[in-house]
Design a protein around this nucleic acid. Structure first.
Lengths: 231, 231
DNA sequence: CGCGTCATTGATGTGCATCAAGTGGTGTGG
DNA sequence: CCACACCACTTGATGCACATCAATGACGCG
């Protein structure tokens, strides 16, 4: 995959650290790790030590409901962070699974804490990252609480495309790395409904879809669906 | 209200600071403010400077959907923190409204950052608070994605009661400070549905309800409803 | 006391879940 | 290289849960 391999070096470079500071950051919190498709990066309940930055590939995170059932609570692209939920209780509160072969940086959280004290810019970066994650989830809550099936699927597609665009990819085309069931789980819908909605969007000419390859034809119409019913 | 007035002093006391450190904390980040019922603590888009700790009373937070419509994304009791979403973009991403007369501590975020560098325990506390907020929202997402109306209402009631219990109140009785519409907005349901579900739970003897006063009669049965349909 | 807000309750419609076949794509082993 | 098996996906028929529309009732506040 042509994702920039420099993530998350890029991120730390962009906050204005000096060269020696950057080296120190790399040494302390950039521990690379490869993850194969379908493998767990971490599991629910596992003791927390690292947070992770995705370098390449993509992940889903699941939260097990008491009942053995699992629900997808997010998809993660290169540049995203994983495991922030584990800080509170010092144990991972969800599991992360690779949707394709992937690479991550493992960041020992104790080192993150030490660096944060030492380098105010790093501290601010992590506060902002966590705040952004809170915000992302808020939007998911609003999406689930205010949109119907069509709107949810539209919002999902646009969200993914926006994030891919921010990473230098096309804003109109993508390959879905997750199954219809994963999408449905994330959107609070059954996989059949996801399939039907995608078919309908394609029939209406808003998108083209070939298996997992999606391209957007009428972005504005899609965006209109992703807003609460406009009356 | 008989909520402990010492919040959040209690919180900072519990992480093992020395007396002079605690005084410094109080001086730098404990700026008290009173908020009247219905008033905004902050509004969406407003420039971010403080985070807030609730000392007494309760709040709801709303996120405006593009369409002018608002959705409740959380309710906040004494001891909870508000405004963490604003850190990322340095502007508040939602609004917070007092559900009754309330008191908060305004904490200038720059002071929080400075103290975090100075006192590792404070830094860890704030990382944990933010992580806990991420976790709280994850549970809301799972609730919305996997439960039907009855389950959502049951989960909502139990969540509130659990949080009140942690603050020294009864785990079986409470007064709902928010309207049925607020509850519905938070749960992704219409207010009529909330009303009907509450009536049904009462008819089945799981709860007693008199206007906004709720008491739980059969906690286990309620907890069973709050799990994904058990088949 | 009267009005506005909040809540309850009923009747009807619809969006999505559910159940059920059937298709296509992929990877594996003969 | 082909055949089979498995998994992901699609598509149809039916039913139910919840939204919607509507009217009435109960507070609580000025």
């Amino acid at each position: 995959m042509p994702f920039p391999r420099c993530i998350p070096t890029e991120l730390f470079g962009s906050i204005g650290l000096t060269e020696p500071q950057l080296e120190r950051v790399q040494k302390l919190i950039f521990v690379p790790r490869a993850v194969k498709k379908g493998d767990h990066l971490f599991r629910e309940g596992q003791s927390f030590r690292d947070i992770f930055a995705v370098r390449s590939g993509s992940f889903k995170s699941d939260l097990a409901t008491d009942n053995g059932r699992e629900q997808v609570i997010g998809f993660h692209l290169p540049g995203d962070f994983l495991g922030l939920q584990g800080i509170a209780a010092q144990s991972h509160a969800c599991e992360a699974v690779a949707l394709e072969d992937a690479e991550v940086c493992a960041m020992p959280f104790e080192h993150v804490e030490a660096l944060s004290r030492e380098l105010p810019r790093v501290q601010r970066l992590f506060y902002k990252l966590m705040s952004a994650e809170i915000l992302r989830e808020s939007h998911a809550i609003v999406m689930l609480g205010s949109l119907r099936a069509e709107g949810r699927v539209a919002a999902f597609l646009l969200d993914l495309l926006d994030r891919l665009k921010a990473r230098g990819f096309s804003e109109n085309e993508m390959v879905l790395r997750m199954t219809r069931e994963d999408i449905g789980s994330y959107l609070g819908l059954k996989l059949e409904t996801v399939s039907r909605v995608l078919a309908k969007l394609a029939a209406n000419g808003l998108i083209r879809i070939d298996n997992r390859h999606v391209s957007v034809q009428r972005r504005d119409a899609l965006a209109a669906l992703a807003k609460p019913q406009s009356i």
